[in-house]
Computed example of a mutant assay.
Amino acid sequence: MDVALAVRARGITKCFGDVVALDGIDLDVARGQIHGLVGPNGAGKTTLLGLLLGLAVADSGRLEVLGAPVGRTPAAPDGVAGFVDGPGLYPSLTARQNLAALAALRGHDKRSAAIDDVLHQVGLTDVADDRARGFSLGMRQRLGLAAALLTKPRLLVLDEPSNGLDPAGKKHVHGVLTRLAAEGTGVVLSSHRMDDLEALCSEVTILATGRVVFSGPLTKLAAEHPELDFRLLTSDPRAAARLAGEVAGIRVVDDAAAWRGADALVVRALVPALDELVARFVHAGIAVRELAPVVSPLEAAFLTLTEQQETGR
């Protein structure tokens, strides 16, 4: 048993009638790591998060959470907190009252100072005495995170925590998750926001049709799927399109806009070839005003891997 792991899953299978939600899942999440869970709708993400939270048990396989085997009856493992499908809140109670009630139910710290601290961490101090029924989706998500923080979890499990967050809310949530990981808490989160996962996660697991199609560091994912489409904005789009066609390893995906007089040019390339293209632009006196992937490396790999799984390639 590896005590350095917050989660260790081997061969996890879960069925609902004839539907196989999870099919032989292996997963390792280190303590002090933010691990992203990615997959299309119906891939099994919520089912897996529910197993980690003790809301259900696997049909077969072995699951260890915080170094202890998970039993065969649904029960929240000690030291684990979080939510799936949104946090459960009392709409008629204020944010402060919700946290006090949840703390009392779970036998955790319900002192005003502790509640004020977690409200501050998630940026809800100003609405602490407002009723939850009037909260936006993003505010409810942050209040659910505050409830989890009251338990001082060693494993935090979150389902789409960025739903409904404005930039300020996103900043608070990212700050909390980064701090928890730095203090040694394992964090598992699912999200359809690839930018959030790339900003927060050191490792990701991609699920498709209930199976793992990739699990590992983001750097490994980028190395295995390195060719991307890049959007270029330059001072001379026509000359840029001509030069792009002359560099080995560069494929011009869309130069129609450039020849119509627009600034955009889309090329498909490996990074070394792209470096060569930029060097030629500089030598030719063409200013590069923007260079960015059309989709992120994580999103590109996600689309490739899940499409391959769904088509059986």
Score class of each variant (00 low, 15 high):
H225W: 11
A241S: 10
K170W: 12
V213Y: 00
D159G: 04
A264R: 14
R268S: 12
A300D: 08
L243F: 08
L55T: 05
V80K: 03
V213N: 00
V19G: 12
P237V: 02
E290F: 12
C15L: 13
V127R: 08
G11N: 06
A208D: 05
T205C: 10
L197E: 07
A148R: 03
N163H: 07
T209S: 14
T46Q: 07
L165G: 01
M139Q: 07
D23Y: 02
L277V: 11
Y90F: 13
L200Q: 06
Q121A: 14
V282I: 15
R231Q: 14
A273Q: 06
V157M: 05
V173M: 07
G11M: 07
D78I: 15
L22V: 12
L5I: 15
G184W: 08
Q141R: 05
G184V: 04
D254A: 09
T13P: 02
Y90D: 09
T185D: 10
K45G: 08
V204W: 00
R193I: 15
R111Y: 13
L221S: 08
F214M: 09
L270W: 13
A257R: 13
K171C: 15
A68I: 15
K220F: 12
D130H: 15
K152Y: 06
E246R: 10
P272R: 06
D78A: 15
G79A: 07
D28I: 14
W259N: 14
V157E: 01
I286F: 08
A104H: 10
V118W: 02
G42C: 03
V122W: 01
T311W: 06
G67N: 08
L180F: 02
A240S: 15
A104Y: 10
A222R: 07
P297A: 05
H35T: 12
P237N: 09
D18G: 11
A132F: 10
H192N: 11
R131L: 12
P167N: 09
A148I: 05
A300H: 06
V253M: 05
H120W: 11
M1G: 10
L189K: 04
L37M: 10
L303H: 15
L177R: 00
R231N: 13
V204I: 13
H192R: 09
R268N: 11
G39P: 08
H172F: 13
R289G: 14
A9Y: 00
